[in-house]
Computed example of a mutant assay.
Amino acid sequence: MPPKTVEKIKLESLRLFAEEGYDGASLSKITDKVGIRKSSLYNHFSNKEDLFLTLVDDVYERYVSEVKETVHQQPNDSYVEKKLYQALIITTDFLRKEAVGKFYMHFLLFPPGDLKAFVHERFLRFEEELNHVFLPIITDGMKNGEMKSGNPTHVLDAFYCLMDGMSAQMFYYDKKTVDQKREHAWRVFWNGIKSESNDEM
């Protein structure tokens, strides 16, 4: 079944925003790609800002959904190390989806000036959702002795920095090199937070 008009609009808009930037992706170009009149687009979105912010929400929601699905697929008795590592993997793999990756890194980190406050507000909501996923995992790791005791929020901050760093690496190196760097970065990170008793596990 062909995608509905609104989904086609969002798909072509995402590609054009990623390739040509916010200013370059005019509504005329978008409607030409979709094969509709501009008036038809206004049946779904009030203007280009509305369309752009809808895409921001979509990308965030897809990312959070994939992280949650990946973490919840792990058995309850899985090691914390495995759960966090898989979350790092899904982050990198999510950004490998070319249009989504370009859109995420370009616009969500460096949004158009007029929309910066709106995107930032959405980012804070998105991060709060991830906090609810990761903090319980880290807290469990400290309670069961898999990780060193300490402040779970500090570990989460470091984990986010690791994910952000790997996100940037995605756009500089080929897949093999990125995978190697990701494995090395993870191993150093985990060795820094695991408990000494965990060496014997």
Rank of each mutant, 00 (worst) to 15 (best):
P136Y: 03
A158D: 14
T177V: 15
L95K: 03
F159K: 07
D140N: 13
D164K: 14
A168E: 12
R125V: 06
T91Q: 07
N76R: 12
F171Q: 11
G150P: 07
V71H: 02
K82T: 15
M142P: 07
G101A: 06
K48Y: 03
T92F: 03
H120L: 14
D140T: 12
A158M: 14
V56W: 00
V119Q: 01
N76A: 11
H120F: 09
H154Q: 12
K82R: 11
V155L: 09
D77Q: 15
A117V: 08
R187Y: 04
S78P: 06
H106F: 05
V119Y: 00
K82I: 13
N144Y: 00
V71F: 03
Q73P: 03
G141Y: 03
T92D: 14
E69M: 10
D157E: 13
L53P: 03
T139F: 02
V59N: 01
N144P: 00
K116F: 06
T92E: 10
T177G: 04
T153Y: 15
E183C: 06
F171M: 10
S149K: 14
S65T: 11
V80S: 02
Y104C: 05
T54N: 08
V67M: 09
D157M: 15
T92Q: 12
K68Q: 14
R187G: 01
Y173M: 11
G113E: 12
T54I: 05
K143H: 09
R187N: 10
E146M: 07
D179L: 15
V188Y: 01
A185S: 15
Q180R: 12
R62D: 11
G150S: 14
L115T: 07
E127T: 06
Y60L: 05
T153H: 09
L88K: 02
E66T: 13
N76M: 13
S46Q: 10
W190S: 05
R62Y: 00
E81I: 05
Q73I: 07
S149F: 04
D140P: 01
I89Y: 00
L162H: 02
H132P: 05
P136R: 06
T70M: 07
M166D: 05
S167A: 12
N47K: 01
T91P: 01
N76V: 13
F118A: 13
E66I: 15
P136T: 09
K68T: 12
Y60H: 08
R122A: 07
D58P: 06
I90G: 04
Y172R: 15
E128T: 10
P152L: 06
M163Y: 00
I138N: 00
M170D: 03
Y104F: 12
D77G: 04
V67G: 02
H106A: 13
V188D: 09
K83S: 02
A158R: 13
D114L: 11
L109R: 07
F189G: 09
T177C: 05
M147D: 04
D179K: 13
P112N: 06
F118I: 08
N144M: 09
Y85V: 07
H132T: 13
Y60R: 05
S149R: 14
F189D: 07
S46M: 12
Q74C: 15
Y85L: 10
R96H: 10
